[in-house]
Nucleic acid binder design. Structure first.
Lengths: 215, 215, 215, 215
DNA sequence: AATGAATGAGCATTCATTCAT
DNA sequence: TATGAATGAATGCTCATTCAT
């Protein structure tokens, strides 16, 4: 499963970064099929030939990009989760991280949306499954722990609630990064929804706390 | 909308249906760019020339398909919402409808995911916005009404909670129809997640009730 | 084994001819790999797209061309062979036909040489084998018949002699059509070798008669 | 020939051999255009850069390979021809040499076939002409000598008969080395044609003796 | 109105050749 | 001298769109 060739790894991090960024840009903005390898090469300031020295094919490049995106997201998540120990503090941290992360890496989030598309799902699932698995496991265990501590109601299935929680996270990510979901967010809560991060956290924390706790 | 669409509307409903279905199939399965007009024509049993008599361009056909999808979804929603009057009964009805509807119209749901993709969002938002607007309005008003009746906690913003609620709906739809989200669901709650509709409703209703009510 | 699609057969013979001729030209002159589909299309006065409507791929077009070449050669041979009944008269007729045929269809003969090349042999043998089989059978039976009539020495294997005979034919074809073999012929018998058809027939008939008869 | 070839000649014979063999392999198996310089370098265990230090271009390498092939063939021929003095003993020796040589140097023979192809003929003729010239001269002189000794019929043109003789040799070479001609041989004389060298020599000697002698 | 053959711009990919190390 | 990464022109093939019938 060499998503990318040895040759790419030998490149300077700066160059690797330029190529990955150019590719993310293109794939996130145009989708896999309309993405143009020549454009990616041009944006990255390398020749097409070089792209094909680093990656076997368009698909291979796409997979490398997805792999990179997943690694970046995973790193961000791990960073958060180890810094807190209370379930709701963790959740709040995640929400705030989503707000900063999705704005910093808009295209990465857009790419994630693109990836879930039917035509690409086979390709990407193998790569992404690992991360989703880790997340699922992690959330469920935190919820269980909180149940044992009596901070979360005992009559729920941690696995299902982990799923619902992550669903809210995913949708929040899209709402901050993808035009369609941005528009949808504005339609639901108003034009200035994207400017009031604090209110979003406050309301969503109320929603989640309510869902998890017997007050 | 334009001279071309008129010619399409004059067609027998049966033929219209064949063409729309073929197009939904193709767009949902391959994405906009990889969708092949010639394949659509063949699947629908008409000539390419005819497709171009009915629709100005690939984009126009895509928009017509999206429009049709939205109308179908809207009709389904309206049907539900008018049959009940309690907020939570309505929500439960919607959940069950999502379960049957997404299985019956798999490709419609897949198309909805495809639509939200960055490369297509400009195109589709104009069409979809109306429906999303109606939904947003409706949910918010139901929540407000329930707040006034004391069935929903008073310290929340109905608009935000409508948004979170719909997010859960959207994610549920994808989980039942799109391969990527199907896999993700299985990863979170187990391999047989798709076979236990009752449990899903039960858990999700607990989640939602908890979020909305002060017990 | 549809060497070419239905669509090609529906074309006017004139257009079919133009395309085949352009393709023979290109394949014979540049070899399979360097042959340029765009050039073929241009020479034939059709679009590249059309070429790909008629033939699935470059390989498919090549096979169609080879098929056509074989059919043309077969027709020429059959014509000759049925017009005479004496072995040596037949051979002489064939020699003279080679002289006119290879000059009229230079590229067909060049293509035949190209076809025998290692990189193409798998591709073409299936198509050509039938014709070579017919030829082998035919020549051997004529020789056998002549042996029975006492016109050919009895102590030879008709199959081997048919092979040697055909070898001389093949080399003669190449000598009249392919530059390399033309040069070689000139080197062996002199600069004006190609202008003295009568002498070639005379000498070659002596060679062959000698080989076959006990004087 | 030029500054580049000199660098090649300075190489150890072992390295020269590796490069030539790799190149012969590639050119014989894929044809000139599809032959890949990078593959040749890899097979030979040197870098592409080195190949381009030794040879000016792909064409130059090809020519060097052809030159080498010709030299190898010439050496083999000279060896035979000086060891016998009777025309027919020489011919028989040549036939047997073809049988061993073409099996030992399959790719060399395949390359010879490839060389005669139209697209390559200009390129190669200058190099090969010398050898073909020597051969032509040699055979004709032997035949003339044999005519003078009364062992060959006087009423034939030695040049033409030298040509026919060499044609039989060329075709025999191909029949033992090139897949297309192998198949053709089997078609003419049977599946086990390649296993019965003695019978081939016997029959072909009968054919040739008959052609040359007045019995 | 319906057809489907014809078009040609557009794109992924290859590979001979160069040149900095 | 040897290396092999970088280059970019060249080409097979696709497919939305047109239009004569």
């Amino acid at each position: 499963m060499n998503q990318f060739r040895e040759t790419f790894n030998k490149l300077s991090p700066e160059k690797q970064g330029r190529i990955l960024e150019a590719a993310i840009d293109e794939f996130a903005g145009h989708g896999y099929d309309s993405a143009n390898i020549n454009s990616i090469a041009q944006k990255a300031g390398v020749s097409v030939g070089s792209i094909y020295n680093y990656f076997e094919s368009k698909e291979d490049l796409y997979l490398a990009v997805v792999h990179h995106a997943v690694e970046t997201l995973k790193a961000a998540l791990e960073d958060i989760v180890t810094r807190e120990d209370d379930l709701f503090k963790r959740i709040e941290m995640i929400l705030r991280s989503i707000q900063t992360f999705t704005r910093r890496y808009v295209n990465l989030t857009r790419l994630y949306n693109e990836m879930t598309t039917e035509s690409r799902s086979d390709l990407t699932w193998t790569i992404v499954s690992k991360m989703e698995g880790v997340t699922a496991e992690l959330y469920a265990s935190y919820i269980k722990e909180a149940q044992e501590n009596g901070r979360v109601r005992p009559d729920i299935d941690p696995k299902y609630f982990a799923f619902f929680l992550d669903n809210l996270f995913v949708q929040l990510q899209f709402a901050y990064a993808c035009d369609y979901y941005k528009n949808r967010l504005k339609m639901f809560v108003g034009e200035d929804a994207l400017d009031n991060d604090e209110l979003m956290v406050e309301q969503l924390m109320k929603f989640i706390r309510g869902a998890f706790c017997l007050q």
